[in-house]
Every structure is written in structure tokens, then in C-alpha cells.
Nucleic acid binder design. Structure first.
Lengths: 134, 134
DNA sequence: CTTGACCTTCCAGCCGGGGGAAACCCTATG
DNA sequence: CATAGGGTTTCCCCCGGCTGGAAGGTCAAG
């Protein structure tokens, strides 16, 4: 399996697959011509990483999850800890974005959006009354 | 006003203020010793950008908003368009994160988190049944 | 033989900064 | 006057997670 075929099989761009290799996630064999040769297990790992990335895990998380996946002596507690931490991080990011969203929604609703210059959005961003007239 | 004072006044790190200058957002004067000298209007712009960043606007957006702020001939429609677009982007990011959150929450809830290796989280990430035993 | 598709490596850039080196400036103190 | 300390300057590299492009090697088809 060449990198192009692995890319087609996983839906990942070939560039990304090479990047994952540089990051030590998946190390294919090499053919006599220097081309990368992906075993089924390599492709499985790539697909694993692709799914983990789709859930927002960092590449560091992916490395750890991949190691746990291939580790017969793992405990589900280790896996759960990583996932729970990531879940917290996601919740924090959502909360932060929702804060921005609430403020912005207010401002956008209050803005006339016509051809006059008065704008509550700019008023809210402006630290003090007079904008620099320059 | 030196950069350190401007930093204290705006809450922005001095490094960030220099970066904003490199990005063309705020251009201070220079004293005879080569030090940056921030006018009140510069500090106001920095504070403006700080608030816009806190609402998640990109630096490109900040540049545009800053230009509109100092433009007497602006229309609130222009401002609203930028803000509304950003609002859409925020909503999209929230939706994406919430999708991850829902899936992950499911998986985390289903994972025993004990010392056994069976784990629905890994099962969900694994593309096919057998993990590479290597 | 040539063409085109694929593969290889390397280098650079995106965003929004952060870390740190080496050098300069200013003030205060001994 | 020397020096110690704090601030400031420029410079370049680093982060994550890729993405684009250049320059060259390989392979199968026409």
C-alpha cells in the first residue's frame, strides 16, 4: 500500500500522513524504491488517529491513545482519564466561545446596520468616548 | 508612555504590543533614544484591539474594525457585517465542539475506568475489530 | 522516448503570539 | 565615577497541525 492508497483508504491527505510519521505516530516500511509501504496495521493506526482527531484530540493525545490501544496491559482508567481531560478542555472552549457569542449577539442585534456611522459594536469596543479622529 | 506603561494600561504583554505593531495595527512614535512612545490614541487603539480579541475577532478583523472606528465616513452596516460573519464563525465552532462533546461524553460515560483493558472509547476509535497486537 | 502521475525530500508559511539572547538606555547608589 | 538593576531594542526560533511549493526520482502507458 503506497501513501496515496493509504490516503484514499483513510481520507487523510498524503501530506498529513507524512506529518504523522514525522511526529512518530505511524511508521511505515520502505520499498526498494524508497517509497513508503503501509501495512494494514499502519492504515488501521492512521484511521484510528483520524477518528481521534475528529474528536478533537491533540496529536499528543493521539500518540498516547495509540500506545494504549496497542498495549494489552492497559487499563480503561488510563484511557478514560485522557478522554475526560479532553472533555473538560472542550467544555472550557465551548464556554469561552459562548461567552463571546452572547456578547456579540447582543451587539449585533443592537446595531442598526444602515448607512449611518453610529454603531453600538464600535462603542462597546472603544475604551473611552472619543475615537482618535486622525 | 513607554511600551511597559502601555502594557500595564492595556493589560497586554509588551511582546504582543510589538507584534501588533509589526502587523500594522498600532504604530507608536519613537523617542530620541529609540524607545517607542505611545500616545493616548495609540493606547486607546491597543485597548480597542484587546477588547476585540477578547470577543474572538481575528487580527484581520481587528485591523478592519480599527479602520472603521477611525473613519468618520463609515456605515454601521460595514461594522455589522464583520461582526455578523464572526458570529457565524463562532456558532460554527461551537457546533463543531458540541458534536465532539456529545460523542465524547457518551464514550466517557460508557467507559468503566477501572483496571481492565476493555474500553468503549478505544473500541469507538478503532477502525476494525482487531487492534494491531504488535 | 516521452508524458504524466505518483513518489521523495526539504523549506517556508499560516495564526497569535512566547521565550530568550545580546546589546543599549536610564536611574540610583556606593 | 563605576556599577548594578531595571527597562528597552532587535533578532531569531519555537509552538500545533498542518498546507503549499520546489526540485528531483520512479513507474506504467502510449
Amino acid at each position: 500500500m503506497t501513501i496515496g492508497e493509504a490516503a484514499a483508504a483513510t481520507g487523510l491527505p498524503a501530506k498529513t500522513i507524512r506529518y504523522y510519521e514525522a511526529e512518530g505516530l505511524v511508521t511505515p516500511l520502505r520499498g526498494p524504491n524508497g517509497y513508503r509501504r503501509y501495512r494494514d496495521s499502519d492504515v488501521a493506526k492512521l484511521a484510528f488517529v483520524a477518528r481521534a482527531r475528529a474528536l478533537g484530540f491533540t496529536l499528543d493525545d493521539c500518540r498516547a491513545l495509540l500506545a494504549l490501544w496497542t498495549d494489552r496491559g492497559r487499563t480503561s482508567a488510563e484511557v478514560k482519564r485522557i478522554a475526560a481531560q479532553h472533555l473538560d478542555a472542550i467544555a472550557a472552549r465551548i464556554a469561552s466561545l459562548q461567552g463571546m457569542q452572547a456578547q456579540l449577539r447582543h451587539l449585533v442585534a443592537a446595531c442598526a446596520g444602515d448607512d449611518r456611522p453610529d454603531c453600538p459594536i464600535l462603542d462597546s469596543l472603544a475604551p473611552c468616548e472619543p475615537p482618535p479622529a486622525r
